[in-house]
């Protein structure tokens, strides 16, 4: 398959290892990767903060860069960015775009996938030959869970990982409190939610808390680092890309692991 890889602005700039793992994973599965060089950001932060005019160029850019019909699927290691493309780009195009933009958006929306749903639904694989001999707990992230409805897909992928010790996260479906600019505008309420999430994460005794979204992991990982917890955060793609021949080596400090 010819796959367009969307790195997401956060992944490209702050968490490149998660995107690298995604690229390596897809290449290993035998697919051709296309990385449109002009890609930047999906505009999710703008829309979620109340700005819909400003991201019009971003929505248009995304539709143009990935609109190429030879790109069969657009894949990104982020549930919330995939959610933004599928649920918000249409709203922006409807309100501030023209007919061409609306058509372009509809075309890319239909072939946009978050990594785990692409692997399970489109490629039909759950065991991708990964090896990760550590105790792991999975946080499902709200937009993956309730906007994209990825359901059990990430867990099916994780269960197939060789030697993984996968432990259930209590109250897994509760939000970690990030919510983009919510964590800035309502920092204290956000921190209260984060504290409960961290209590549940550390209670599992897991070495790694994983998820399909670097933004939620930045939040949880940032908190775990501050309290000097023993649990690190790591993107789902990095676990899936770890193999016996090139295993992931857990770093010594929590924040390094988020990268």
């Amino acid at each position: 398959m010819r796959i367009g890889l969307f790195a997401t602005c956060l992944g490209d700039t702050l968490f490149p290892d998660a995107v690298r793992a995604t690229a390596v994973l897809l290449a290993r599965l035998g697919h051709e990767l296309v990385f449109p060089p002009d890609q930047t950001c999906c505009g999710q932060m703008h829309v979620n903060t109340g700005y819909q005019r400003e991201p019009v160029p971003l929505v248009r850019g995304f539709a143009e860069q990935f609109g190429d019909p030879s790109i069969e699927a657009v894949v990104m290691p982020s549930g919330s960015c995939a959610g933004s493309v599928r649920h918000q780009h249409g709203i922006v195009a409807e309100r501030y775009g023209d007919a061409a933009l609306r058509a372009g958006v509809a075309t890319v929306q239909a072939k946009t996938y978050e990594l785990s749903e692409f692997l399970v639904d489109v490629l039909g694989v759950t065991d991708i030959g990964a090896y990760f001999p550590h105790r792991v707990t999975y946080h499902p992230t709200c937009h993956s869970l309730r906007l994209l409805r990825v359901g059990e897909k990430p867990l099916r992928l994780l269960r197939a990982v060789e030697d993984i010790d996968l432990v259930e996260l209590p109250e897994a479906d509760a939000c970690c409190g990030f919510g983009g600019t919510f964590a800035v505008k309502n920092a204290e309420t956000s921190s209260a939610m984060l504290a409960d999430k961290m209590r549940h994460v550390t209670g599992t005794g897991a070495a790694v808390c994983t998820a399909g979204d670097s933004s939620c992991l930045m939040h949880i990982g940032g908190g775990l680092s501050r309290i000097e917890a023993g649990t690190r955060t790591l993107h789902l793609a990095q676990i899936l890309a770890s193999t016996r021949t090139s295993p992931y080596v857990l770093p010594s400090t929590p924040l390094e692991a988020t990268r």
Partner: peptide, 21 residues
């Protein structure tokens, strides 16, 4: 500051994904 009151933020890495690619 409300964010950094209870969360560390990683410093940006030396190389972006696209630079690596």
């Amino acid at each position: 500051n409300g964010w950094s009151d209870s969360r560390d933020t990683p410093a940006p890495p030396k190389r972006s994904f696209r630079a690596w690619l």
